[in-house]
C-alpha cells in the first residue's frame, strides 16, 4: 500500500479545514449554518482568476517563483480575491441575512442561504460556463520525498500557507481584542452588548474572515485541481462535517477535523475507490451526530 494518500489527505484536508473555519465561525457567531459558504469559495477562486488574468493583460506574463507554477501576480491576485470575497459576503449580509436576522427564526436564514447558494453558483455558471478553468497550464514534476510519497512544489507551498493562515487565525482569536470579542459574543450575545461590544463590527469581522479563508481554500483547489462553478458545492458537506466534528466555534477543532476528513477521504480513494469519496464526509457526520454531537472540542449547548 502506498503512503501517498497521507500527503493527498493532508492537502485535501487543509482545504476542507480552511473552509470549515468560516463555517464554524458563522455558526458560532451568526448562529446559522451557511449553505452559501461553498459558493463564497468558488466566487473567490473565480475572482482571483479574473484578477490574475487582468494583471497578466496589464503587466504581461510574469515568471513563476522558483519551482512553483505561479508568480507574483498570483499572490497579489489572491489578496485581492480575498478582499473581494469578503465584500461579496458583506453585500450578501446587507441584502439578505441581516434583514432576516432582525426577525429572529434562524432556520429561515438557513433557507435564505440555500437560495443564495443556488443563485450564486448558477450565476458563476452563467458568467464562466460549467467547463473547468485553470490558473496555470504548467505541469509540475512531483519530487519523491521518501516512503514512496511524491510531492509537488505547489503542494509544499500551499501546505505552508495553510499552516501560516491557521496559526495566524489562532493568534488572532486568542490575542487580539476583536478575536476575544468574537469569542465573547459567540458565548453570550446579550452580555456582549452589555460590556460594550459593537455587534455590527463583530458580524462584519466574521464575514470578512470566513470569506477570506473560503477564498484561500478556493484558490488552493484552483491551483492544485481546477476551478469549476460546482467546486464549492462539492466541498460543502466535508466542510459542514468538519465544523461539526471539530466542535462548533472551535477553530483548532475545525482544522483538525478537516485534516481527519481529508485523510479519510484519501484513504477511501486508495482502499475502496475514488467514486465513493464524497460519502466519507457523510459517514463521519452521521457517526459524530450519533456518538458525540458536540464534536471533538465542542462544549454542550447552553
Amino acid at each position: 500500500m502506498s503512503l501517498q494518500f497521507i500527503l493527498d489527505g493532508l492537502i485535501n484536508g487543509s482545504m476542507i479545514g480552511l473552509g470549515a473555519i468560516g463555517v464554524t465561525l458563522t455558526y458560532a457567531i451568526l448562529r446559522f449554518s451557511n449553505f452559501a459558504h461553498g459558493d463564497l469559495m468558488a466566487w473567490g477562486a473565480y475572482a482571483t482568476l479574473a484578477l490574475v488574468s487582468g494583471i497578466a493583460a496589464l503587466a504581461g506574463a510574469a515568471a513563476p517563483i522558483g519551482a512553483l507554477s505561479f508568480g507574483w501576480p498570483m499572490i497579489v491576485a489572491a489578496l485581492g480575491g480575498m478582499a473581494l470575497t469578503g465584500l461579496l459576503a458583506l453585500a450578501l449580509d446587507w441584502l439578505l441575512f441581516a434583514r432576516l436576522r432582525d426577525r429572529g427564526q434562524a432556520i429561515i436564514i438557513v433557507m435564505a442561504s440555500f437560495g443564495a447558494s443556488m443563485a450564486l453558483r448558477s450565476l458563476l455558471e452563467f458568467l464562466f460556463t460549467s467547463s473547468p478553468v485553470y490558473y496555470s497550464r504548467a505541469i509540475q514534476m512531483a519530487m519523491p520525498v521518501g516512503l514512496g510519497i511524491r510531492v509537488t512544489p505547489d503542494q509544499i507551498a500551499l501546505l505552508v500557507v495553510t499552516l501560516a493562515l491557521v496559526l495566524g487565525m489562532h493568534l488572532f482569536m486568542t490575542r487580539s481584542q476583536t478575536g476575544r470579542e468574537m469569542r465573547a459574543y459567540s458565548q453570550n450575545p446579550a452580555l456582549a452588548r452589555v460590556v460594550g461590544i459593537d455587534v455590527a463590527r463583530i458580524v462584519r469581522a466574521t464575514w470578512l474572515i470566513g470569506a477570506a479563508l473560503a477564498c484561500a481554500a478556493g484558490i488552493m483547489v484552483g491551483i492544485l485541481v481546477q476551478i469549476r462553478p460546482l467546486m464549492g458545492l462539492d466541498m460543502l458537506l466535508p466542510m459542514f462535517a468538519a465544523a461539526i466534528l471539530g466542535g462548533i466555534g472551535s477553530i483548532p477543532g475545525a482544522v483538525l477535523a478537516g485534516l481527519i476528513i481529508g485523510l479519510s477521504e484519501a484513504a477511501t480513494v486508495q482502499l475502496i475507490g475514488a467514486e465513493w469519496r464524497a460519502a466519507v464526509a457523510f459517514a463521519i457526520l452521521m457517526a459524530v451526530l450519533f456518538i458525540r454531537p458536540m464534536g471533538l472540542f465542542g462544549v454542550a449547548e447552553r
Binding site: R180, E181, R183, Q187, N188, V195, G196, I197, V299
Partner: peptide, 14 residues
C-alpha cells in the same frame, strides 16, 4: 461572565 474566556480575558474584553 463569559465562561469560556479566562478571568483575565473577561476583563480585557470589557
Amino acid at each position: 461572565i463569559f465562561p469560556l474566556l479566562t478571568v483575565q480575558e473577561n476583563l480585557a474584553v470589557a
